[in-house]
């Protein structure tokens, strides 16, 4: 139990610190690397909770695909991040206000959960009890592909529309001259050559 507790605090502390570093690092590439560190620690927290499937998905999808994509985008776009941050102080009060409102609302929700202790009983999709023989991979699969199959398919359609939109708004077809071997082979002298007889001494 003590080891678990220690591990939790270790991973949680690193996750929080690297989260802070993501937004405070001067170099955007460092930000992305700290983001990856935060993902890894969050994955470790999932393992501690017994949600091994989520942990692996987090590493494979977020670290393996999303973060690497971020890295590419950050390195390929020529954005002056120092310049972007110049308005920071000006927008600070506004941002702090929004943060405060969100914090109050979060506390409100947590407070309500504490005040209404049987609120947890009405949850629509409760986690299966650990001794039911259903692994959490199976539980997620059941929810995603059985109960929420419609939502899953609709999300797929939304992604399709997003793809169509990106293509419609950005793809431009430039005229390209392609080599056509068949045309070249089929070309005959009669089609393109004209033989004229020219009288001597008179020029063309």
């Amino acid at each position: 139990m003590i080891i678990q507790g220690l591990a939790f605090y270790l991973f949680a502390a690193i996750a929080v610190v690297s989260g802070a570093m993501v937004i405070s690092a001067r170099n955007p590439v460092h930000s992305v690397l700290f983001l990856i560190l935060a993902f890894f620690n969050a994955a470790a927290l999932f393992v501690l909770m017994g949600a091994e499937f989520l942990a692996f998905i987090l590493v494979i999808v977020y670290v393996g695909a999303v973060a690497v994509l971020f890295l590419f985008v950050v390195m390929m776009l020529d954005i002056d991040f120092v310049e972007l941050r110049e308005g920071f102080l000006r927008y600070l009060p506004f941002g702090a206000l929004i943060g405060l409102i969100l914090l109050v609302e979060l506390l409100l929700v947590i407070g309500a959960w504490l005040v209404v202790p049987d609120g947890a009983a009405v949850t629509q999709a409760p986690a299966p009890p650990p001794d039911s023989g259903i692994s959490n991979t199976e539980a997620i699969g059941l929810l995603l592909y059985t109960d929420y199959a419609l939502a899953f398919q609709l999300a797929g359609l939304i992604l399709l529309v997003a793809m169509i939109g990106a293509i419609v708004l950005t793809l431009r077809q430039r005229p390209v001259r392609r080599q056509r071997i068949a045309d070249q082979v089929n070309r005959r002298p009669e089609d393109v050559l004209v033989v004229r007889s020219i009288d001597r001494g008179e020029g063309v």
Partner: peptide, 13 residues
């Protein structure tokens, strides 16, 4: 939400 987004995303384009 999903219906709303499917509709809106198409309309934006």
């Amino acid at each position: 939400y999903l219906g709303l987004e499917l509709q809106s995303l198409s309309l934006y384009v």
